[in-house]
Design a protein around this nucleic acid. Structure first.
Lengths: 227, 227, 227, 227
DNA sequence: GATGAATGAGAATTCATTCAT
DNA sequence: GATGAATGAATTCTCATTCAT
């Protein structure tokens, strides 16, 4: 989970890529396990503050100062735990990415009929839950990537992973004549974006209705798109 | 359409001393009508440069300097036409917003069968064209709104306008039991986001295939979503 | 009176100091006499606008743009008549300076008794009138000089001229034991500053009362300061 | 006294996100009490540098850069303590204002005869001392107010406070037929302006002579103005 | 472990002055 | 004579990052 920095941004010698390093140098706490209780607490405070700040101001507009104030620590402390703003963000997104990927892999087999819809509905609801928790970070993630390739297309991997899961199912049951890749992407696009709208906008979307629609449209598309 | 700024960002009072000045509205750049040929050209250059820069760097990372360099003018000139970056951006988005809104209103009546799909496909293709031209601005638009409500939820209006057009159609032909609002929003989400993926990502989506899928999924959803 | 620029700021070759130049070069109108009716009008408009702008914004904060807008002309035109902001200001102050100096020289002989007070009162009233007309420029003048010696101590000359007039009178009637220079300066200070307060501040000073006081204090000081 | 800025000029909201923050007031620089020794020193350096710079260049012409260079710090540091030039200036003027006000309240009772003159002379000398120390700021203060009411008429308060002190005395001993308000203002004008002349100009005024004159004219005016 | 303070490289913006028509 | 447009040097201000205690 949250570890203090993985990003390549690190410039201090004690994080030269070799994770094997046994005796962490002084000055920078590095990997979580060596942190005492107090350090753990500070780290958490910073991560939580990060989520908040990125959520409210977005990636670019977020200032280290905001994070530090919210966490009630100092600038000095921040840089004790993270190499820079990007590093904090990476820690956050990695958390999110893992959860999302895991969920993607639980996409159930699609069966026709009401039963299939129900199963799919449940899966979608789970995704919505994740979005509730991590949505803000995902949004910032998308923003961070714009015009900046330093994020190694992390967001893309997320989307692609999700789409791949769908593509597998489509290939299994899908009708001929449709590119599974593209169809899968279309579904992911719809789900992701609607959840996003629901999360950020005043566009009041009733949660249950939204999940219903998402499930049924997805199901229809997977089972009989060109009926 | 594109006018040299109307945004409220202008800060020069101008109405300083002689309030009697009759017609000429606030702002320095003066309204379009007063611009001579040369001014018009410069304004265009700046707007075009703006599109480019916002496209490549995103809203936040874009610097006035970039715009100015690309347009081959000076800083001074920039501020002759726009109050600031935001103002330039507003001019751009207003252009885009209008085009999109207009297109939204041409959404055809949805008829069942292949014919209906074909009509819808054509409309979708038109939208894709618009996205080709203005996509970059739309992307930046989304980014600009994050954590900043100063853009008056313009992007929302765009989405809402689009969704409303769909909602009308759904209400006409749609099956009972589905919230037209939400369903419409889901479709818009799918279309917008897939076009976005297609535009920004390496996720290589074949244009024609993409439009096919979009049209057929939309059509299926509108005509027999819960068959 | 108002002539288009005298300041040394001129950088265009056509004003190299030699006033003898007979055939004024093109481009810059130079000395008033050659201005046709239209030019005269424009020059006046600029001077008047200058008074207004310097009055409301002060010297430093005044922008050529303000002047130009108020005069309903263009920047180009401004520089046709004046070498720069300072030049315009110099034209204005010279006007003021002359008037003030002239008035200073009319300071009447001070006689004891009510009659003397009355005479002095009249003179003071005349000064107040001048201040009404030119006060704003004088204020800006003082400001302009602060931390900037480029104005060649013009304001000082004004003060000194005034003080000298008083000093002459004091020497004539004044009591021994007082430095006429300093006493004169004190009186000038009082008069000038009170007029200034009256002009700028909400400190509501009744004009007639003010002139009364000024005259009587001055008279008392001149006739029987250390009685 | 001198605190690291209280002015409303601060623009960082700071109350962004967590409004719950209890005690710490707005502003970035934080209130004096939280400054450690080093911070105190820096603050002092900046204030002192400010006095110098405003003295030599005046308010408008003063650049933050000048202050920073003189204080041997960086721009960043400056903005750690003050929101901007105006804020620094406000801190300075508040210092000055307080001192002046305090002195104004020590204006002694005016008794006739030589003794009265002597008492008054002492008070005036004290004022001159203050002017020696703070004169430059006062001058800049006057300048700063021109065409700009953002200084909340602080300078006026100064003048008014002084005048009020005199008015009280005049009312006590003064002759009938004179408006104490106006007379007081006239005296303040004389004193303030003569001190100003003495401070800024080459107009060489001998300090002792100046104080003598000031005291005697004031005394004469207060005791037997229309004798 | 923690923190207050300092830093300086950007980025934004203004405005006097010049130029081409 | 007049003007709209262009220019760029000078300033202000921000914020990620480093340092000393």
């Amino acid at each position: 989970m949250a570890r203090a920095s993985t990003s390549s941004a690190r410039r201090r010698p004690d994080s030269d890529g070799s994770d094997a390093e046994p005796a962490p140098r002084a000055g920078r706490p590095a990997q979580g396990r060596e942190l005492r209780a107090r350090g753990q607490r500070t780290l958490r405070k910073l991560l939580d503050a990060g989520i908040q700040v990125f959520a409210t101001r977005g990636y670019h507009a977020a200032r280290v100062d905001d994070v530090v104030k919210l966490a009630r620590t100092s600038h000095g402390t921040f840089y004790l735990y993270f190499a820079n703003k990007e590093d904090l963000f990476a820690a956050l997104t990695s958390e999110v990415g893992t959860s999302m990927q895991e969920h993607a892999e639980t996409l159930p087999e699609i069966t026709p009929g009401t039963e299939g819809v129900a199963t799919l509905r449940e899966w979608t609801a789970g995704l919505a839950d994740l979005y509730d928790r991590y949505g803000a970070v995902i949004v910032a993630w998308t923003e961070a990537e714009i015009g900046d390739s330093s994020f190694g297309r992390m967001g893309d991997d997320l989307i692609s992973g999700m789409a791949a899961a769908f593509a597998r199912r489509i290939r299994a049951v899908g009708p001929p004549g449709v590119d599974p890749q593209v169809a899968a992407l279309a579904l992911v696009a719809m789900i992701e974006r609607l959840l996003y709208y629901a999360m950020t906008r005043q566009v009041h979307v009733e949660r249950e209705a939204m999940i219903d629609i998402l499930a049924s449209v997805t199901h229809a598309s997977l089972c009989a798109p060109a009926a």
